[in-house]
């Protein structure tokens, strides 16, 4: 399998003072679903925003490192060009245009997909998310959280991406809805041959969807592996699944504690 996205030694700082990322490196293979795990403030969202080019609009800057997508350097490119290269982001908040209808939200997208291709992708969205098809004329601001997430995914799909970035897929949604979205996302991914990189607070959801995962802490990647490996890792279980005896603590603390126990 070929590597689609390579992030190397990425440093990002906000307002030239606060360092958010201190050397993040990760890679995503074509066709994979990859999750980034980590606590609040670990730098997950910043990583996604840096890849999608959102960061320049946010008073933040990539100070060091590279982001290569299919052989093209993306760092410091404006967002609309990155989208046209084939990367679409589903942001955590403000993910739809509230005063436009559901269908208009899918119409405004400007991408490589023109004419027939756009219509095909729109049909695909409506097929996979029948709820949206029923609500075509509804203003997006009036949708429920789950419908909004579906619309956001849908409008990202109309961008004809090769790589889709999803910031918090399950946050604030009822488990039933998450279930529904995860299923649809899996089948869309098969239909389109999509690669997905998602940030997830819920490790349970992440492991269900992703084949591979990275764990981030304090602005860097501290652990990576296949979902199966990570899921069986004690420290990860403790930190993110809440199934260990020690409650939710940082992965690193737990790993250190475990090392001490092993030595003793």
């Amino acid at each position: 399998m070929s590597t689609l996205l390579t992030v190397k030694n990425l440093h990002v700082s906000y307002q030239r003072a606060i360092t958010a990322l201190t050397g993040v490196s990760l890679s995503v293979d074509a066709g994979q679903i990859v999750a980034i795990l980590g606590a609040n403030g670990a730098g997950k969202t910043t990583t996604l925003r840096a890849i999608s080019g959102f960061i320049g609009l946010d008073n933040a800057r990539v100070t060091q490192g590279s982001i290569r997508f299919d052989g093209t350097e993306l760092a410091r490119r404006p967002p609309y060009q990155i989208t046209r290269q084939g990367i679409a982001l589903v942001p955590e908040r403000d993910k739809v245009f509230p005063n436009l209808s559901v269908h208009e939200n899918l119409e405004v997208v400007s991408s490589r997909s023109a004419g027939a291709e756009r219509a095909r992708l729109q049909d695909l969205v409506y097929t996979h998310f029948p709820r949206l098809a029923a609500l075509k004329k509804r203003e997006a601001g009036l949708l429920s959280g789950g419908e909004r997430q579906m619309l956001a995914l849908g409008s990202a799909i109309v961008c004809a991406p090769r790589l889709m970035l999803i910031d918090e897929l399950s946050l604030g949604l009822a488990p039933v809805i998450v279930e529904e979205i995860v299923e649809h996302l899996k089948s869309i991914r098969t239909d389109l041959g999509l690669t997905i990189l998602l940030v997830e607070q819920s490790a349970a959801v992440a492991f269900r969807l992703a084949e591979h995962a990275f764990v981030m802490e304090h602005g860097e990647v501290v652990l990576s592996g296949s979902s199966a490996e990570l899921e069986s890792n004690d420290a990860v279980r403790n930190a993110y699944l809440g199934t260990g005896s020690e409650g939710r603590r940082s992965y690193r603390d737990l790993a250190m504690a475990r090392d001490k126990e092993l030595k003793a």
Binding site: S52, L57, Y80, V108, S111, C159
Partner: peptide, 11 residues
């Protein structure tokens, strides 16, 4: 409505 999202949608 949302210039950031618009840019993200390729506009």
């Amino acid at each position: 409505q949302n210039p950031l999202l618009a840019a993200q949608r390729g506009i």
